[in-house]
Amino acid sequence: MKRQVPIFLVFLCGLTMVIQFFVPHDYSDVLFQYANDFVIVIGILALPVGIYSLMKNTVNKAMRDPKERIFSALTILGFLVMIVAGLKREWFASSTSLSSNMFNYVLVPAQATLFSMLAFYIASAAYRAFRARTVLAAVLLVTAFVVMLRLIPLPEPVATWNAEFVRWILEVPNMAAKRAILIGVALGAITYSTKILLGIERAYMGTD
């Protein structure tokens, strides 16, 4: 019961959706519509599990390490402020409310700045690791160099040649490489999904 029923359910639901794809009919469209809607509802109700886990980890961390307490308290405070500030839908959706201001002036700058630091790390990586140690590495390096050169104002006709060459790189070898990866990944994903439908792959169920 603990394993066989879920495996059967996966097979049944999956097969129904595959058949629905090939049989366009009003009934199958209604089925498809409700199946989608039900999945959204399940997903919405599953998300509190993630929020609970984050809060539990924060509290546990604070219990274990006294130095962490102030930081954990700030996480919980930030969480509670946003809950209270967004309790009513008009507060939450208003562009001048506390909730919106916290979003625009705390969340946005913090997240944007965290990711902006990658510019420094990529510069450091370019300096420390981007070396033509082998022919393959040299091919990668030269390609990246030519692509980046497109943002430098070069004298004519070099600028036009470079722009044309980059266009060729993007549309021919880059396209070929990315398409091969795309097809390869798709074949892998389809195989994996088929194994799930047939009950061969069961990792998603976890252990008893």
Binding site: I122, A123, A126, R128, F130, R131, F145
Partner: peptide
Amino acid sequence: TSHAVILFFIVMTN
């Protein structure tokens, strides 16, 4: 400017 700097870094390190 930043692309010029990175290109310069790549040349110098190589």
